[in-house]
């Protein structure tokens, strides 16, 4: 599959701070790739390098097979960008904003008007086209921000944390919209702090920290990278050594921990051992009052790779 963009050994320094440290990364055509990382990990720096706006010290960046250049108008024509900050004209109406941004890519008035209508419909702002942008609610502003970035039907769209500070309904609407864009043929790069969004949306995930690519792959591939376990929380009717000794003998059990009023049994590989455990409990007539199982999540992978220390 052809690469839409590629970063090879990119180094970017801000004086003493290394924002990108030999960063490698690529996106294949038709993918939705999530770029995850803690604050200050270099996500926005990477995006700005891809956009050709930020100079880097070493390495190479290619988009659509060509070295990225701020003067490459053909490349810009094929790219869409939805920035983290709301980037439209607050004094203009919703329609005027989308029309202006679409007009930067499409000079034919008729085609531009079609783009505006489609973008308005796409983000669900039909009722607000005549509203002044600054009077919209936070969620609607986010949607307008997206409409301005995607109205021209770009082949490759970069979303830089587009769901910051929006409610659950708007977030869901935005994510569904991105999936729909992808179905229509756009390749998507999506950066976010919300791991569950990446888990839900992305075909492939890249985790970066301190300017480096820490890991990349599908969710399953990432989970496999970090020695995963499935946590089964059980409240036994009569807990005791007999029960724990019996459980320790069951294949796949790697640890047993006592927590508040229940026991946590760690199983590996995740998703394959729970039925065997329940069968053994039944065979040994061990009763319990509640049970639930937690499979490893992207959050576990993320914290394992990037650590739990607080970031700036």
């Amino acid at each position: 599959m052809q690469n839409v963009c590629e970063m090879r050994q990119v180094v970017k320094r801000y004086k003493e701070v290394t924002a990108l440290d030999h960063f490698n990364f690529e996106i294949h055509e038709g993918e939705i790739v999530g770029l995850l990382g803690p604050n200050g990990s270099g996500k926005s720096t990477a995006i700005n390098c891809l956009l050709g706006l930020l100079a880097f010290d070493e390495g190479g960046v290619e988009v659509f097979g060509r070295p990225v250049s701020p003067d490459d108008m053909d490349m810009k024509q094929r790219i869409g960008f939805v920035p983290q900050e709301l980037s439209f004209f607050a004094e203009l109406s919703v329609a005027d904003n989308i029309r202006y941004f679409a007009g930067l890519y499409e000079s034919d008035n008729a085609r531009r008007d079609v783009m505006v209508s489609e973008a308005v419909e796409f983000v669900g702002l039909e009722k607000y086209v005549k509203f002044t942008a600054k009077k919209l609610s936070g969620g609607l502003k986010r949607r307008l921000n997206i409409a301005c970035g995607i109205a021209h039907h770009p082949e490759f769209v970069m979303f830089d944390e587009p769901t910051v500070a929006v409610d659950a309904q708007s977030r869901n609407f935005i994510l569904e919209g991105i999936k729909e864009m992808n179905r229509r043929g756009s390749t998507v790069l999506y950066t976010t702090h919300y791991l569950e969004e990446a888990q839900e949306l992305c075909d492939r995930i890249v985790i970066m920290d301190e300017g480096k690519n820490m890991a990349s792959g599908t969710l399953e591939e990432l989970i496999d990278l970090v020695d995963p376990t499935e946590a089964v929380h059980i409240a036994f009717s009569e807990p005791g050594d007999r029960v724990f000794n019996m459980i320790r003998e069951i294949p796949g059990v790697v640890d047993i921990q006592e927590e508040n009023n229940h026991t946590v049994i760690l199983l590996t590989p995740p998703g394959h051992r729970l039925s065997a455990l329940l069968e053994e409990l039944k065979n040994h007539h061990i009763s319990y009052t509640s049970l639930h199982s937690e499979l490893p999540t992207l959050n576990d992978v993320f914290l394992k790779l990037t650590g739990k220390a607080l970031r700036d």
């Binding site: 956009l51 701020p70 790219i79 709301l86 980037s87 941004f101 930067l104």
Partner: peptide, 16 residues
């Protein structure tokens, strides 16, 4: 001018 405001970053990504 992209180094002066977020709006300018957005406009600078377009073929202007």
């Amino acid at each position: 001018q992209a180094n002066l405001s977020p709006l300018a970053v957005r406009v600078s990504t377009a073929p202007v």
